[in-house]
Design a protein around this nucleic acid. Structure first.
Lengths: 233, 233
DNA sequence: CGAAAACAAGCAACTGCTTGCTCAAATATT
DNA sequence: AATATTTGAGCAAGCAGTTGCTTGTTTTCG
């Protein structure tokens, strides 16, 4: 698994660069078979991580010899690459929609939290791989976009927090940088135990989480209005 | 790295007791060299994970050929085993001390949180490996104690939360099981970014965290006493 | 048909681990 | 003190199996 100076970038990269003939619309070709293989690989990556998953395991799970995978994908790395880019593309679209609404910070935060929980199941593999293998992937130019996208995500969340502090919705002594890390960690790591078939749905879990995070563990003191809303909006 | 039906236990079986004195009950011997090798391996495990770290990398980092490691350790698994058991032994001792004090739930919680942050640096490798490789290690009887210890940890934390709800210190509508998971996740995953040489010390970070988690993001309403303590105790 | 998909076989590099040996320092015996 | 023995630590070489990937051929099927 040497770096192997392949220059292809992320998924939207245009060149299939496969041999002589360029079959129409290849590369991004979306045969169902191809997508099925991606899903199978994603499941394994989510379970065992990227490095610890072998191409032979992927082949076995797909009922195919490992060599046959290379008819569909350039390399094992190309497989995660597609999984990761799909995740970030989807995530960024969701975020765009949320922040473009220009809602109150507390409302925007709720939308972000819900979006996070709702993405856990569909993008389990991407989230797991990024968490467990960020350092490793960072070595490769191919995966530079991962760090860039993460920075963008951080900017979006932090802005919502900062806006909330500025508008008086959140406590003014909030360290938004650290708060973001706590939120991000607890949200994304939930990928390890959250399943939509469990006791709580993604939205219910998001609401539980918001209640905890907005109002805290502590019981409101007796002299405080017991009916005050958990969060405004 | 298959489970491998564990046939040879090697050395101690055949060898008769050494002459006059017997020390070094084999394996548990703790020369400084041995400890140094453990530390080196721990750093690599923390950086790359257990499965992705090779014995040759450990050897290289120690300035030794990989084969020489087997003079000190039975196997690569034996190395993580020692790292993990050391962690749990230390953690349980700390917990014992905390819960034996029988303090108020909010105080006990604070102690638990501080203990968690303070363990991050010293036990970085153990915490990282457990997080990223729990599923894999669970396959082996050798590592059964990991799951058992984790369950014990969960019991301890959950009891503190339940006590807090019962005593009225924490809000009564708290789902303590879910709350524990959120707390655990955000605390333990901080191992990825926390360094004691950073902006905040472990205790300072613990206090930031407690402030967030006890009182929440939301600004106390105007009619509430602005001087109410963040947590009692 | 002819393209898409899979197979069979294998390569070079790497995996955890074992073996037989060296060698200096510590310990025991004379 | 001088000699003999044991021990701790390591090296060099290599094992059997696994890794990602390649190549040439065969099957499947619209």
């Amino acid at each position: 698994m040497a770096p192997k100076s392949r220059t292809t970038l992320s998924a939207p990269a245009t060149r299939p660069r496969r041999g002589t003939r360029q079959r129409s619309e290849q590369g991004e070709g979306s045969s169902q078979r191809r997508q099925a293989l991606l899903d199978i690989a994603a499941d394994l990556f989510a379970e065992q991580g990227f490095r610890s998953t072998t191409v032979r395991q992927i082949g076995d799970a797909a009922g195919v010899l490992s060599g046959s995978l290379y008819h569909h994908f350039e390399s094992k790395e190309a497989i995660v690459d597609e999984i990761l880019s799909a995740y970030f593309t989807s995530l960024m679209a969701t975020y765009e929609e949320i922040v473009n609404k220009d809602s109150e910070p507390a409302v925007a935060l709720r939308h972000l939290v819900r979006a996070a929980f709702n993405s856990l199941d569909e993008h389990r593999a991407a989230i797991t791989v990024i968490q467990n293998e960020r350092g490793y992937l960072n070595q490769f130019p191919r995966f530079e976009y991962v760090a860039e996208s993460e920075a963008e995500v951080r900017r979006i969340w932090t802005k919502v927090l900062d806006d909330g502090v500025a508008s008086g919705a959140f406590r003014e002594d909030l360290d938004t940088a650290i708060t973001y890390r706590f939120l991000r960690d607890s949200l994304w790591v939930a990928v390890r135990w959250f399943t939509p078939s469990g006791r709580l749905s993604a939205d219910e879990l998001a609401d539980q989480y918001l209640k905890l995070v907005m109002s805290g563990l502590e019981k409101p003191s007796a002299w405080a209005n017991p009916d005050r809303p958990l969060f405004s909006g």
